[in-house]
């Protein structure tokens, strides 16, 4: 059983989605996350164990390697795809309550801004950290964040902006969220955003990169 978890961890860490996937070359023709997750379930390993002892540690290693500039985003994305293949098998257990995530993360690029590469990276990394994601997309106003919070009470919110003229919209969104759900933890990020700006608009955390967002989220969950 432990061997299966080790193999699954390795498959996710190196981005082996399934057996026919050619990537990574060193795992060619070997079982990927898809097959290994099915085997683990069939072997009677609890889904929560699969999540906590294989998938989350694998993505944690990936995040660390990325933060240390030992891999590029494509490798990280392949790992995310491998994790996605595994999560697809685990989906029924989430629905039944047999697995619990660390919480829900609502993320969006703020109104007037269409840049989503940074947002997508954060979203993927946080998901890899064991959170459910509600991605509201780009050009998102306060009303959509409030609505998503109503549907996901207690969720953490992430706001992204790349322009100096759209980062100001973060302030209005934070204020509106504070009216409707004052206890909500809000993190912000994007090229022009600073820790000082974060403090000024009353957000809780400024994430200078995706890994810092994950670390903050993990602190919240601990």
């Amino acid at each position: 059983m432990e061997d299966l978890l080790v193999k699954l961890l390795e498959a996710v860490e190196f981005g082996k989605v399934d057996k026919k996937s050619p990537y990574p070359p060193q795992l060619r023709d070997m079982d990927g996350a898809h097959e290994l997750t099915i085997s683990a379930i069939e072997a009677g390993i609890k889904p929560q164990i699969i999540l906590e002892e294989a998938l989350i540690p694998a993505m944690s290693k990936v995040g660390k390697k990325f933060a240390e500039c030992k891999i590029f985003v494509p490798q990280m994305l392949m790992s995310a795809r491998a994790m996605g293949a595994s999560m697809f098998q685990l989906k029924p257990f989430f629905a039944s309550g047999a697995i619990k995530t660390k919480g829900t993360f609502i993320i969006g690029t703020v109104k007037g801004d269409l840049h989503d590469i940074g947002k997508n990276l954060v979203s993927m990394m946080v998901e890899g950290g064991g959170w459910s994601i509600v991605d509201l997309g780009v050009d998102v106003g306060s009303d959509k964040f409030v609505e998503a919070l109503k549907n996901n009470p207690g969720a953490v919110v992430g706001l992204s902006a790349l322009l100096t003229t759209t980062m100001v919209n973060m302030g209005e969104i934070v204020s509106t969220i504070r009216v409707h759900a004052p206890e909500t933890k809000i993190l912000i990020g994007g090229a022009p955003v600073t820790a000082e700006f974060c403090q000024n608009i009353g957000a809780d955390f400024y994430a200078p990169d995706p890994q810092k967002a994950v670390e903050y989220m993990n602190l919240l969950a601990s």
Binding site: T164, T165, M167, V168, N169
Partner: peptide, 8 residues
């Protein structure tokens, strides 16, 4: 050039 941080 562009504007400083401000709304339009």
């Amino acid at each position: 050039f562009t504007l400083p941080v401000m709304s339009i």
